[in-house]
Computed example of a mutant assay.
Amino acid sequence: MAYRETEKMRQRKAEARQRIVQRTYQCVEEGGFRSARVTRIAGLAGVATGTIYRHFESREDLFAEIFRLATQREVDKVAEALATPGNAAERLERALRQFAERALKGPMMAWSLIAEPVDPKVEEERLAYRKAYANLFEKAIREGIEEGCIPDQDARQSSTCLVGAIAESLVGPLSPTQTSQPACATTDNHDSLVNSIIRFCMQGLTGARR
């Protein structure tokens, strides 16, 4: 008689997979991808190491899924900011601020998503999501050009520049060597840092001094 998987077994497998994802996310959030060792993840998830490889072909596949999950949350937040009331320039400023402020509130995860050295499969995801951000910004820039609040320009190129500028400007502040400093040494400067980043981006985009 052929083996047939029961609904109860499928549910148990789905629950085990979800625990693996949740605990891997936790490890990355606490210490980056470098701290997410398979043995540690298995222990936290309450499964055998081999169980992880029954759900994911490799460690890199698991990390790629965590990267997609974490970054999609951030892309969605940027999209929400771009959908708020106001002209395109105002909405873009809001979205850039959202990006920077969320990164600084969760520095280890943000570092992992933006700059931590990762395996090629995860790096492919990083490039894909940079493009996702750029596509959102490009649409808003085109809307701003039509509205007249943003000067005529190559919207695609400008959107790529925005993504590069904001990501690169956060690399230093998000670096684990910086975020390991006492909270009082870092949080006091967050507002001025975010304002500086936004001012640079918006001046470059609109040509207006802020």
Rank of each mutant, 00 (worst) to 15 (best):
M108K: 09
S159V: 00
C184N: 06
K77Y: 09
P173Y: 06
A88H: 11
K121S: 11
K131F: 03
T84N: 06
P176F: 07
H190S: 06
A165C: 03
G164Y: 09
G148Q: 12
A79K: 07
Y129C: 01
R126C: 06
C184P: 00
T187G: 01
V122F: 00
C149M: 09
F137P: 04
T160M: 14
A167H: 12
L82C: 02
A103Y: 11
T179Y: 05
T84H: 12
V194D: 01
Q98I: 00
D119N: 06
G148D: 15
E93I: 00
F200V: 07
S112D: 08
R156P: 04
N189C: 10
T186G: 06
D119I: 09
A155N: 12
T179N: 08
A165N: 03
V75P: 08
P182I: 08
G106R: 15
A132D: 09
C201F: 08
A110P: 09
S158P: 05
A110Q: 11
R73V: 14
I114K: 07
R91F: 07
R97W: 05
L96Y: 10
G204K: 04
L92K: 01
L162N: 01
G106Y: 10
R199Q: 13
I198G: 00
G86D: 04
I145R: 03
I197Y: 06
N135E: 13
R97Y: 04
E116T: 05
R142W: 02
V163P: 08
R142N: 05
G148Y: 05
E143Y: 04
A185C: 12
Q157Y: 13
A70I: 06
D152A: 14
E147I: 07
R102L: 11
V171I: 15
I114E: 02
P117C: 06
G144Q: 06
S180N: 09
Q153Y: 10
N135R: 11
T179Q: 14
Q181F: 10
R73P: 02
M109Y: 05
V118N: 11
W111Q: 10
A165W: 02
A132N: 05
N195I: 01
A88V: 03
T179H: 07
V171P: 02
P117M: 07
D76T: 02
L174C: 10
V118I: 15
N195F: 03
H190Y: 13
P85H: 06
A128R: 15
L170V: 13
Q98S: 14
D152E: 15
K139H: 09
T71D: 01
Q203H: 12
A100W: 04
A132R: 03
R156E: 14
E116Q: 10
L96F: 12
A134N: 10
H190Q: 14
F137C: 02
P176M: 09
A134I: 00
F200E: 00
C161N: 12
A103H: 13
R94C: 04
E125Y: 04
M108F: 00
A89F: 05
D188W: 05
G148E: 15
Q157C: 12
Q98A: 12
R97D: 01
K77V: 00
A81P: 11
L127Q: 13
T71V: 08
A132V: 03
D154Y: 13
